[in-house]
Design a protein around this nucleic acid. Structure first.
Length: 578
RNA sequence: CGGGAUGUAGCGCAGCUUGGUAGCGCACCUCGCUUGGGACGAGGGGGUCGCACGUUCAAAUCGUGUCAUCCCGACCA
């Protein structure tokens, strides 16, 4: 490719709307162009990167025994009604009507479609197991798209679905996919952690996510992990053992009584006012889950993990209540209290979920729905309520102890580039997708699903490989391997040498760009660094002594070689990695 | 949907307070000069100032409304 003809425009500045490294780099280097929030054009350089990642994914999926197909992007409502998700999926599902006024949606994921395809074909146990995958654009109408390709609304995804006879088969395929995923991300130059995760709206029982850990803090997930054993989990799923602390207030409160606690609107103010540790306070938070208020009770030094709470309540939508909604709830129950003094007392027909750790609290301080008052030395039995459900709704905090080995847990940001789910019969059962066994009996398929964000993986690779000058693509996914920069295109010897190397590399199957633009050397160097070619060959004045300069983007190492040596070196290195 | 900000040329921005010819840098075109880390000089093309209504002799500028975008909180590949 001649640089003078390449459809790319690099910018002198980073796009003003970009926050994270990958968005800044990909925007400035001309890889992506935004059309609408979360919707991007993949320019030729970007598309080459994405195709490289796709092909790595294809090779490993095929090696793992999966078969590629391609399902429709626009889907009819009927299938989504069969699975029950038309109602459940929420506003991320982009719904539209066709000219006949039929309800359709843009595919955010393809469980419904693949299940309907499979049930028409897979009739017998003899045909199982099967694993089918596709690579395709997905559309999710995210509440707030951001971070460029890390959270687009339209994005490219590989999604695979497995069909097995039973749980044993699913377990085997799950492991098979976990193994394939590790190879895929390794080949893309990404170090990943496989972490336990909540299974979310897609549903199912067990799931793991593949997280890229970078030092750019771009990830949207908090990952807890143990350095001593292999435990690691997304914060929405992580569990921990607590460090011992005082949770019985008997030394502070001799009796149970209502006390004045004026203007203690926060836990901090309350614990300071009473001069007690916050571990002796029971915090009450009001959430709105599926439009209904739910009280969450938790020890005041801990935070609620909303996904856990939502799951415990059996809901699909959760948010913290507004102060207006809290006021409404108080009025409805005949109380007059503002946030800071809310408690479970008198909340008869409201769902109340207490964290497991609340069971162990004794003689604590709790709000009783009276402004400027709390009950001290209280126990839940004193409050006259029996409608409390216990569940783990606690957000793990750094330093708490690993559930497996008891060592302190650490936390880091992670970018989720892939995940694997055990779906079981969640879709096959309601959609009547069954096979006939050896005895002539029918059973629903036992399914798994396995996703990889292709475009997100590309962005994650930038987060993991960059410096102040630009991107440093791993060779395996770089848009081109080499750029040849003749310093002065009007110098005949330089240009002739560059052209020759360009031809030689090309005929050896190396993907090479010749920067034949009539620009000053500085401009070409800046662009080469920004775009992130793994190798640069500069043909400058030293060519009169027979040497060109060879430079590795990743390490910055540079050496002098004759043109022939440089060509040979590049061919050897690149072929070894490919 | 809450809270904050911004809409002026492809990109980055000034101008608005105090209404009066729409500007700067980059990019683009022409000529000259230059060629190892985003040169320089001269000339040139390109804008319904987000949109609507209002105030005014006159609106990018003032007022009202509206739309869009971005950032902070609930989603997930």
């Amino acid at each position: 490719m001649k640089m003078s003809k390449m459809f790319v425009q690099t910018l002198r500045e980073y796009p003003s709307d970009a926050e994270v490294i990958s968005h800044k780099m990909l925007g400035r280097a001309g890889y992506i162009k935004k059309l609408a929030p979360g919707i991007y054009t993949f320019m030729p350089l970007m598309w080459r990167v994405l195709k490289k990642i796709e092909n790595i994914v294809r090779e490993e999926m095929d090696n793992a025994g999966a078969q590629e197909l391609l399902m429709p992007f626009v889907q009819p409502k009927e299938l989504w009604e069969e699975s029950g998700r038309w109602e459940v999926y929420g506003r991320e599902l982009m719904r539209l009507k066709d000219r006949h006024d039929r309800d359709m949606c843009l595919g955010p994921t393809h469980e419904e479609i693949i299940t309907s395809v499979a049930r028409d074909v897979l009739k017998s146990y003899k045909q199982l197991p099967v694993n089918l995958y596709q690579i395709q654009s997905k559309f999710r109408d995210e509440i707030r798209p951001r971070y460029g390709l890390l959270r687009g609304r339209e994005f490219i995804m590989k999604d695979a679905y497995s069909f097995d006879l039973d749980e044993t088969g699913l377990d085997r395929e799950y492991q098979n996919m976990a193994c394939a995923y590790k190879k895929i991300f390794d080949r893309c130059g990404l170090k990943t952690k496989m972490v336990q995760s909540d299974s979310g709206a897609i549903g199912g029982s067990v799931s793991h996510e593949f997280m890229v850990i970078t030092d750019t803090d771009a990830g949207e997930n908090d990952v807890f992990y143990c350095n001593n054993c292999d435990y690691s989990a997304n914060s929405n799923h992580a569990v921990s053992n607590l460090v011992d602390t005082v949770i019985d207030g008997k030394d502070y409160f001799k009796e149970t009584k209502i006390i004045d606690t004026p203007s203690t609107h926060s836990i901090e103010e309350l614990s300071r006012f009473l001069n007690i540790p916050d571990t002796l306070i029971l915090k009450t938070l009001v959430y709105i889950i599926d439009k209904k208020p739910v009280l969450a009770l938790i020890r005041a030094d801990k935070a609620v993990e909303e996904t856990k709470l939502m799951n415990a309540a059996g809901g699909i939508d959760i948010r913290i209540a507004s102060s207006a909604e809290i006021a409404e709830l108080m009025a409805e129950k005949g109380f007059d209290a503002i946030p800071g003094f809310i408690g479970p007392k008198g909340m008869k027909d409201i769902k109340i979920i207490a964290d497991e750790t609340v069971r162990d609290m004794k003689n604590f301080v709790v709000g009783i729905n009276q402004t400027d008052k709390h009950m001290a030395g209280a126990n839940l039995t004193d409050l006259g309520i029996d409608n409390i459900d216990y569940a783990d709704i606690r957000l793990v905090q750094q330093g708490e102890l690993c559930p497996q080995c008891g060592e302190p847990l650490h936390v880091t940001k992670g970018i989720e580039v892939g995940n694997i789910f055990k779906l079981g019969t969640k879709y096959s059962k309601p959609m009547n997708a069954v096979y006939t066994d050896v005895n002539g009996k029918t059973h629903p398929y036992v399914m798994g699903c396995y996703g990889i964000g292709i475009s997100r993986t590309a962005a994650a690779a930038v987060e993991a490989h960059y410096d102040e000058h630009g991107i440093k693509w791993p060779i395996t996914i770089a848009p081109y391997h080499v750029v040849i920069v003749p310093v002065n295109i009007n110098d005949e010897l330089q240009m002739k040498t560059a052209e020759k190397m360009y031809q030689d590399l090309q005929s050896a199957g190396i993907e090479v760009v010749l920067d034949d633009r009539d620009e000053r050397a500085g401009v070409k160097f800046k662009d080469a660094d920004l775009i992130g070619f793994p190798f640069r060959v500069t043909v400058g004045k030293t060519i009169s002594d027979g040497f060109v300069e060879y430079k590795i983007r990743e390490t910055g190492i540079q050496k002098q070689y004759t043109p022939d040596q440089a060509v040979k070196k590049l061919i050897d290195i690149i072929n070894a990695v490919k």
